[in-house]
Design a protein around this nucleic acid. Structure first.
Lengths: 260, 260
DNA sequence: GGGAACTCAGTACGACGTACGGAAAAGGGA
DNA sequence: TCCCTTTTCCGTACGTCGTACTGAGTTCCC
């Protein structure tokens, strides 16, 4: 994640950026009240976002189309454009909404406990909203829920006493780890959104590989690991293992800096 | 990544799985020679894969359509289907091809050096083929290049003497780390494939955020980190930092197991 | 009461993956 | 040599997508 703040002009903030950008920021932070003029709105922004999340949860993120979300709400597809600028922007709002459910750790706890809680909350979020993984957002939305959680994670890591640049790196390390485990495990247990093919069906369809090109001589380590059953992993264990190694490494760094 | 081998029947391997699955495995491992009958083929499978990689490199993975790849090759869109079963399968072949460029470490080196080289090679691969990140493959292809690199990484981690299940986890940890850094840094420096919007343009368009809803009181840590300049990160440093922490943690685990 | 502002939604356009089917090219058997 | 079978190439077409445009209908303000 890039949290750079670009240089901004010294004029009225309300004219910064583009109209589209300002609109999106406003939708994230301060959803505008319905206009006085015109007909009463049939829906609210929240309803649209929730319908989007419902579609993504039920049919996968690849079925998240304006037409499907509109159908879910019983309105015409084009009506959604009065609430939301477009499909990508709807998705951005959904992502920030997903982050809203994250609990923040008790600030009196030791830093390590706080960071671990952040990681577990992230993992819970990916479980609750698996479409966040397929999302592949090229950038986190600048929304209040995302930003509050990020700020709190940085705050917790700051308790280590590490210099700023390493604080940012440690936070990124934790996030990458949880995302990586979620990516490999959730996509295994849930369906491939695009094709509707389950993991089992996928492996079955390609099972000829094991009888033709796979050989224990070429892949001795994989064979040994597989035969030990170690590939049948449980998600929580994966998170905890990596987190433990990673934070052990961070503690070592703290000690080293304290000694030097 | 899931490397489970499904239970397979005790019959002729050539009948395992589905015809589609067998076809794909064959394309990955043993591209069939052109048929004797019929007209000469205008292209080769390799040309199709390379054209796909060229399109993805030039215009982004979102522009990787059968029509675009065909245009690149000067043939009709439907002609590609004699070489490749479909778009997803073409992409799978492209991914395995990208992994082909990875160098494997000298097996006489200490395990840590070998694992570090694997990580750096992965990072180099993501730099060379940034579309691997936006790929969001729900599963690695069962191709020879992917599998050889994976096997070698497992072999290197095995030198730690850790039990099988932790070998698999450490390997996953390293991969997640490199992927995470690549995801956050490459998408920042290159264009957003789908929209053609650069990172700078994106931040500029949304710059009104900093003048309206952002406040140093609400985000004190981010503010401090940003003012220290620590968010201006360099990619290689990020990889090395995380790798160092992570492998320090692994070494600690090895020592602990040796003592216990 | 009339005009301005707004909502809702149908139609349409250009992209996409790809099913289908036809024309043309090449080899093998007579 | 001729024909038939196999295979390649690819135009057409269908159903999907995001969304621009347009217009009809609704509500508030002056």
């Amino acid at each position: 994640m890039n949290d750079e703040r670009p240089t901004v002009p010294d004029t009225d903030p309300l004219t910064w950026g583009t109209p589209e950008g300002r609109h999106m920021i406003r939708l994230l932070w301060d959803p505008p009240a319905p206009a006085g003029r015109g007909p009463k709105q049939k829906l609210t922004l929240d309803q649209v976002i929730e319908a989007g999340m419902a579609v993504a949860a039920a049919d996968g993120v690849d079925k998240l189309s304006m037409r499907n979300v509109a159908a879910q709400l019983g309105v015409g597809a084009m009506s959604l454009y009065t609430y939301v600028p477009g499909r990508d922007e709807l998705f951005e709002l959904m992502v920030d909404r997903a982050w809203a459910a994250r609990n923040l750790p008790d600030q009196s706890l030791p830093w390590r406990d706080q960071v671990e809680l952040h990681a577990r909350e992230a993992w819970a979020m990916y479980q609750a909203y698996p479409w966040l993984i397929r999302a592949n957002l090229w950038r986190m939305p600048l929304g209040p829920n995302v930003m509050d959680a990020q700020e709190d994670l940085y705050r917790a890591v700051m308790l280590t006493g590490l210099p700023y640049e390493e604080v940012a790196r440690v936070a990124g390390l934790v996030e990458s780890h949880v995302f990586g485990v979620a990516r490999s495990l959730i996509t295994d247990t849930s369906m491939s959104s695009s094709t509707g093919v389950t993991a089992d069906e996928y492996w079955d369809s390609r099972s000829s590989f094991w009888g033709t090109y796979y050989s224990p001589e070429r892949f001795p380590t994989m064979t040994a690991i597989w035969e030990s059953g170690a590939f049948e992993r449980s998600a929580g264990d994966e998170i905890e293992f990596g987190l433990a190694r990673l934070l052990d490494g961070v503690e070592l760094l703290i000690e080293k800096l304290a000694d030097g």
